[in-house]
């Protein structure tokens, strides 16, 4: 047991690693030496009470927030050494995101929402929407293509968001409380499909949740408390 390091295995097995991450907002410390190592295709749950720093850890790992100190690497590359433009391109092509609320653009149809990351990467509309519809079918929401996000249920909207996160075939999906606004049945459906599609496509998932039933879909969990990570290795 102890703090996780990115040096637990051969370096080439680590897809995404954060070491000694510290981050404060004003005088409030959010991360205080947190660490996490994610291997390709692995599903890791980040658990912890509200305010423990788990979302900040996700944001640092995803390159959304720069840590005050410490290093985040993706495929061995230090994110801090990338320009803003390179980091944005990385987030668009290699990372997918699913949040709890408000992630779909209300003015666009569901298929346009799913196709958006491809369109931003320069893919033509027809091809982007065809790929988007394929992913929507895997998430069992292909019939909602022409509807707007305001016309679909919360659970359907989250499945559309998962399709959008997967549409660029990213290597990592960052999911921050993806079922937080859903009832048990819809939450379970979202998790089942998120995990199944991520496993099929070989994407790793970094899943922030405070719900044990959601974390039970992961391969392992890391607990964040007071900005520090703790992980437990049980004897098999």
């Amino acid at each position: 047991m102890g703090a996780e390091t990115a040096g637990d295995g051969p370096v080439n097995e680590i897809l995404l690693g954060g070491v000694e991450l510290r981050k404060s907002f004003g005088s409030t410390p959010a991360l205080d030496g947190a660490a996490l190592a994610v291997r390709p295709g692995e599903i890791v749950a980040i658990m912890g009470p509200s305010g423990s720093g788990k979302s900040t850890l996700l944001h640092c790992l995803a390159g959304i927030v720069a840590p005050d100190s410490g290093t985040v690497t993706f495929q061995g590359q230090d994110l801090a050494r990338l320009s803003d433009r390179q980091r944005s391109a990385l987030r668009r092509s290699e990372f997918g995101f699913v949040f709890q609320f408000g992630q779909l653009v209300p003015e666009l149809s569901c298929v346009e929402n799913v196709a958006l990351p491809l369109r931003l990467s320069g893919v033509r509309r027809r091809e982007a929407e065809k790929t988007a519809l394929d992913w929507m079918a895997r998430l069992e929401v292909e019939s909602l293509g022409r509807k707007r996000p305001g016309e679909v249920s919360g659970g359907q909207g989250q499945r559309v968001a998962v399709a959008r996160a997967l549409v660029t075939a990213p290597k990592v999906i960052f999911a921050d409380e993806p079922t937080g606004a859903l009832d048990s049945l819809n939450g379970e459906q979202v998790m089942r499909l998120l995990v199944a599609t991520a496993r099929d496509s070989g994407a790793a998932v970094v899943l922030v949740t405070h719900e044990a039933r959601v974390a039970a879909y992961s391969d392992r969990e890391v607990v964040v408390r007071d900005g520090r990570t703790r992980q437990v290795e049980l004897v098999p």
Partner: peptide
């Protein structure tokens, strides 16, 4: 508490 959480989550998985 940490080892118990892990054992519970393993059972839940």
């Amino acid at each position: 508490l940490d080892v118990q959480r892990s054992a519970h989550l393993r059972a839940m998985r």
